[in-house]
Simulated assay, not measured.
Amino acid sequence: MLLATIGFVATVLYFTGGALLMQRLRLAAAGGRASTRSRIALFSVWGGAILLHALIIYSFSFSPGGPGMGVFGIVSMTAWIIAVFLFLWSLNHPIHVLGIVLLPFAGVTVALEMALAGATPMVDVMEPGLRAHTLLSMIAFSLLTIAAIQAVLLAVQNRSLHNHRPGGLIRALPPLSMMDSMLFHIIGWGFVFLTAALITGVFVWDDVMTRSLMHKVLFAVIAWFVFAILLFGRFRFGWRGRKAVRWTLAGFAWLVVAYVGSLVIVEMMMPA
């Protein structure tokens, strides 16, 4: 009963955080400026949601009496990592607008984990090497998810400015150059963790082959090359704007195929 209450409160806090972010964006679009008190309220709600979500993840996936890490547990943990990174970055960078989408998503994953924990096959990640590989993969996917949403916002902002129709919400976003810089900052860190995940994958190759997840490796390697080309193009040729957005979304699409495809196989093809 206590765990159910914690899960419910975490879900409510995530959605409340998303609503507070939307309110701040509307205020900025109208030319206003959020007060210090509203900022404190936002990050208090957001931080509370993260802490309660962490308790849920521990109770379900890591505690001795928990059901283990199922498919929805993996999705929930990924959403938690996204919420944590976005929270930390938002303390010093105007990137919190992405939370309008990502915080409610995290709330949905909490609700799904609470409702469906134990209903899907458990993933065995007890081996230290496999655990490290899994964690690095989840961090990489989380960071590049943030980058993909940042790229979508950048594309919308870029189109509006080029069409000379900068609506209120567009005016509330940071300058285009800052949005572009933040995008590549996030991609850079995501690429580092994706590289580390692929390197650690070499040491758990037997587990990968046993689980018939060769397709995951292939798609992840393709995504790695896409992001490598994008970063090279950025630093060598100064890629930005539409080209950067297209390459970011292409790399993320390959990563989604790798990530979601492996989850589907865990759920549908492995014995419970």
Rank of each mutant, 00 (worst) to 15 (best):
M1P: 15
L2W: 08
L2D: 14
T5R: 12
V12P: 07
G17E: 11
A19P: 15
L21E: 15
M22S: 14
Q23P: 10
Q23V: 14
L27G: 09
A29F: 13
A29Y: 13
G31A: 12
G31N: 12
R33A: 10
R33S: 13
S38C: 06
S44I: 06
L51Q: 04
H53G: 05
A54I: 07
L55A: 12
L55F: 10
I57L: 01
S61E: 11
F62D: 02
S63I: 08
G66H: 02
P67R: 00
M69K: 05
G70E: 03
V71Q: 00
I74P: 02
I74G: 07
I74M: 05
T78R: 04
T78I: 12
T78W: 10
W80Q: 13
A83W: 11
L86G: 11
F87N: 15
H96N: 14
H96W: 14
L102R: 10
T109W: 10
T109I: 08
M114Q: 10
A115L: 10
L116M: 06
L116W: 07
G118N: 01
A119P: 03
T120G: 00
M122A: 05
D124R: 01
D124E: 08
V125I: 07
P128I: 01
L130H: 06
L130T: 07
R131P: 04
A132G: 01
I139Q: 00
I139N: 01
I139D: 01
I139M: 03
F141R: 01
F141Y: 10
L143Q: 09
T145N: 07
L153G: 11
L154V: 01
H162D: 11
H164I: 05
G168A: 01
I170F: 02
I170K: 02
L173Q: 10
D180A: 08
H185M: 13
H185Q: 13
I186T: 10
W189P: 04
V192Y: 08
T195R: 07
A197S: 13
V204N: 09
V208Q: 01
T210C: 04
T210L: 13
R211M: 12
L213M: 10
L213I: 09
F219W: 08
I222S: 06
A223P: 00
A223V: 00
W224F: 14
W224A: 08
W224K: 08
F225C: 02
A228H: 00
R242Q: 08
K243R: 10
A244H: 03
R246L: 07
W247F: 14
T248F: 12
L249H: 01
A250P: 03
G251A: 00
L255D: 00
V256W: 05
V260W: 06
E267T: 14
E267K: 15
E267A: 15
P271G: 13
